[in-house]
C-alpha cells in the first residue's frame, strides 16, 4: 500500500511540474534568429577577435542584426565572405588578405645588446626600462606578440627575434597592437618587398648597433624613382599601396635591410 501512495504522489508531482514546464516553455519562449546559427556555421570558428567583437558567435549575432558589415572576418577571408554574401544576399567585395610582418631582422647575431636583461620577460616591461637591445627601435624578442597570437603564427627564434609565418597568419592585428616598439605591420599578402628596419637613428649610429639596419642611404628610393619606397628622415619606408616589381632594390641595399618575403600562403 505505501508503495502505491508513493507512486501516486511522485507521479502526480512529476505530471504537474511537467505541465508547468511545458507551459513556461511556450509562454516564455526565447525566439532566436535562426540565421545566427546559420551564419555561425559559415564562420571559421577561430574566435580570434580580429573582427572587433569577442568570438565568432558575437560576430554572427552582429551580422544577423546588421550591426557589423560582413567583410570583417579576417580568418575566413574571401571564402567566408563569398559564403556570407550568398547566404545573406548582401554584395561585398573581398579585400586582399593582410598578413603581419615584423619589420626588424636584427637578432642576436646581427644586432648588439646593451647588457643582460634579467627582468620581466615581457616586451612592454623591457621597453619601459629602455630595453636591453642596443637599437632603441629593434625587436626585443621577449615574445609578447607570440603570446597574443591566436593561431601561433609568430616564432621567437633562438637568437631572440620575432618572425611571423605568413602561411599561418590570419591578419588579426593583435600582435601589431601589442608590440611596444610598433615593429609589426599588417601588409597586403601580395607585397613581397619589405624594408625590414624601423630605426630612425642616423646612419653611423645604426651601423654601430646593427649589421642589417637601414642607414638611410636613399639608394632604394632612387632605384625605384621614389615609387614604392620613400624616405622618412633617415629611414626608407615601403609604400604598401603600390606593388614593387623591381627586385634590383634588394641587391642594391648595402645593408641587406631589404628582403623578399612573400606573404601568400603556400599552395
Amino acid at each position: 500500500m505505501p508503495s502505491v501512495i508513493a507512486i501516486i504522489v511522485l507521479g502526480g508531482t512529476g505530471l504537474v511540474c511537467g505541465a508547468a514546464l511545458a507551459f513556461a516553455a511556450k509562454v516564455f519562449e526565447v525566439k532566436e534568429d535562426p540565421r545566427i546559427q546559420a551564419i555561425l556555421d559559415l564562420l571559421p570558428g577561430a574566435n580570434c577577435g580580429a573582427c572587433g567583437v569577442p568570438g565568432c558567435a558575437e560576430y554572427a549575432k552582429a551580422v544577423a542584426q546588421q550591426k557589423l558589415p560582413i567583410d570583417l572576418c579576417k580568418r575566413g577571408g574571401a571564402e567566408t565572405l563569398a559564403k556570407l554574401s550568398i547566404y545573406l544576399g548582401v554584395k561585398a567585395e573581398a579585400k586582399e588578405r593582410r598578413v603581419a610582418i615584423v619589420l626588424c631582422q636584427g637578432d642576436n647575431t646581427k644586432a648588439s645588446r646593451r647588457g643582460v636583461y634579467n627582468g620581466i620577460a615581457d616586451c612592454a616591461a623591457a621597453h619601459a626600462m629602455g630595453g636591453d637591445k642596443g637599437c632603441r627601435y629593434g625587436c626585443l624578442g621577449l615574445g609578447s606578440c607570440a603570446r597574443v597570437c591566436p593561431v601561433n603564427a609568430i616564432e621567437i627564434t633562438p637568437n631572440r627575434l620575432a618572425v611571423v609565418h605568413p602561411e599561418i597568419c590570419i591578419g588579426c592585428g593583435l600582435c601589431a597592437q601589442t608590440c611596444p616598439r610598433a615593429l609589426i605591420k599588417l601588409v597586403p599578402e601580395s607585397r613581397r618587398i619589405h624594408v625590414l628596419c624601423r630605426s630612425k637613428d642616423r646612419g653611423p649610429v645604426v651601423k654601430k648597433l646593427c649589421s642589417v639596419g637601414c642607414i638611410g642611404c636613399t639608394l632604394c628610393a632612387k632605384t625605384l624613382g621614389n615609387q614604392g619606397i620613400r624616405m622618412e628622415g633617415p629611414l626608407a619606408v615601403v609604400d604598401y599601396s603600390v606593388q614593387i616589381e623591381n627586385d634590383e632594390v634588394i641587391t642594391k641595399c648595402p645593408q641587406h635591410s631589404i628582403a623578399n618575403r612573400p606573404g601568400r600562403r603556400l599552395a
Binding site: N118, G119, I120, D122, A124, A125, A128, M129
Partner: peptide
C-alpha cells in the same frame, strides 16, 4: 620576483 619592475610597469 622582479617586484619593483612590476610596480614601475603598473605605475606607467
Amino acid at each position: 620576483r622582479p617586484l619593483v619592475q612590476h610596480m614601475r610597469l603598473g605605475k606607467a
